[in-house]
C-alpha cells in the first residue's frame, strides 16, 4: 500500500519534471534559433526577455524538485537492463534522433553520475598536488591568497559604498535649477525687470524699475568699486532676502552720489 503510493508520487513528480524540462528545452531551442537566424534584427531587450524566460523555467524546475511532494530522487538508481548494438526506433523517436542505439559505448556517458572525465582527471591532479605539498608551503600560500582576496574584498566594498552614496544622493532630487532664478531671468528678458534704466530723463529714480539690484549700477552713477558703498559689499542673494534694509541703503547711497547726469 505504502509502496504503491510512493510509486504513484514518483510517477507524477517525474511527469512534472519531464514537462518542465521540455519547456526549458523548447525555449532554449527558440533562443538558439533566434541567435542563429535573427542576429541582424534582434535587439537587446528581446534577447534579455529570452534570458528571463530561461531563468524562469530553471527556477520553476528547481522549485519543483525541492517540493515536499517530490520524492528524494537522489536515493533512486537508474540501471541499464539491456544493452543492444542495434538501432532502436523508439529511442530515436524519444530523443529526436540524437541517440540511435542503447549500446555499451554510449550508456556509460549517458547514465554517468560522476564528473566529466576531463574534469575528473584535473581534480585528481590537483588533489595529488595538494597532498604532496608540505605544511609550511601550503600555509604560506594560503596567507598570500587571503591577503589578495581580502584586498579585492576591500576594493569591492569601497566601490559599493561609493555607488550607494551616489545613488542615494541621486535619489534625493539633486537641485540643478532654481525656480527663483527662472522667474528672475524670464521676467528680465520678457519685461525688462531689473534691467530698466534707473533714471528718467528728468533725473528721478524710475519707480517702475522695482528691482533693488539695479540701483547701484545706474547709468548716471559710475560703477562703485567694491567696498565703497555698503551695498556693493552685500552679496546679491542677501539682497533678495532683505529688501527693506537694502532700500534704505540705496537712499543713503543716492545721497552720497546724487544722479548728476
Amino acid at each position: 500500500m505504502q509502496q504503491a503510493r510512493e510509486e504513484k508520487q514518483l510517477e507524477t513528480a517525474l511527469d512534472a519534471i519531464i514537462q518542465r524540462v521540455n519547456d526549458l528545452k523548447s525555449s532554449m531551442a527558440a533562443m538558439i534559433y533566434k541567435v542563429e537566424n535573427e542576429y541582424e534584427t534582434m535587439n537587446w531587450p528581446t534577447f534579455l526577455d529570452n534570458y528571463a524566460l530561461l531563468s524562469g523555467h530553471l527556477t520553476s524546475l528547481s522549485k519543483l524538485m525541492n517540493h515536499d511532494k517530490c520524492p528524494p530522487l537522489r536515493n533512486l538508481t537508474v540501471l541499464p537492463l539491456m544493452l543492444s548494438p542495434e538501432r532502436d526506433e523508439q529511442l530515436v523517436q524519444n530523443t529526436e534522433g540524437r541517440v540511435t542505439t542503447f549500446a555499451h559505448d554510449l550508456v556509460p556517458d549517458y547514465l554517468r553520475t560522476k564528473l566529466e572525465p576531463m574534469a575528473e582527471t584535473k581534480m585528481l591532479q590537483l588533489e595529488h598536488k595538494a597532498a604532496n605539498l608540505n605544511y609550511d608551503n601550503a600555509q604560506k600560500q594560503v596567507t598570500a591568497y587571503q591577503k589578495v582576496v581580502s584586498h579585492v574584498w576591500d576594493i569591492v566594498n569601497k566601490a559599493r559604498e561609493e555607488w550607494e552614496v551616489e545613488s542615494s544622493s541621486r535619489g534625493t532630487a539633486q537641485q540643478n535649477s532654481s525656480t527663483q532664478d527662472t522667474h528672475v531671468l524670464v521676467a528680465a528678458v520678457g519685461m525688462g525687470k531689473g534691467l530698466k534704466m534707473v533714471t528718467n530723463p528728468n533725473g528721478q529714480p524710475n519707480p517702475s524699475s522695482g528691482g533693488m539690484m539695479v540701483a547701484p549700477q545706474g547709468p548716471g552713477r559710475p560703477s562703485a568699486p567694491p567696498g565703497q558703498g555698503p551695498i556693493s559689499s552685500t552679496p546679491q542673494t542677501m539682497m533678495n532676502k532683505a529688501p527693506s534694509a537694502i532700500k534704505t541703503n540705496i537712499k543713503s547711497a543716492t545721497q552720497i552720489h546724487p544722479y548728476g547726469r
Binding site: S178, D181, T182, L185, V186, A188, G194, Q217, P219
Partner: peptide, 24 residues
C-alpha cells in the same frame, strides 16, 4: 546667460554683469 548692461551703455560687451547665478 543674461547680462545687464553696465554703466558704459555705448560700449556693449564691456562691464556687463550677469543678472543671476543661472542660465536661461
Amino acid at each position: 546667460k543674461i547680462f545687464k548692461m553696465g554703466s558704459m551703455t555705448n560700449k556693449p560687451g564691456e562691464s556687463v554683469e550677469p543678472i543671476s547665478q543661472s542660465y536661461l
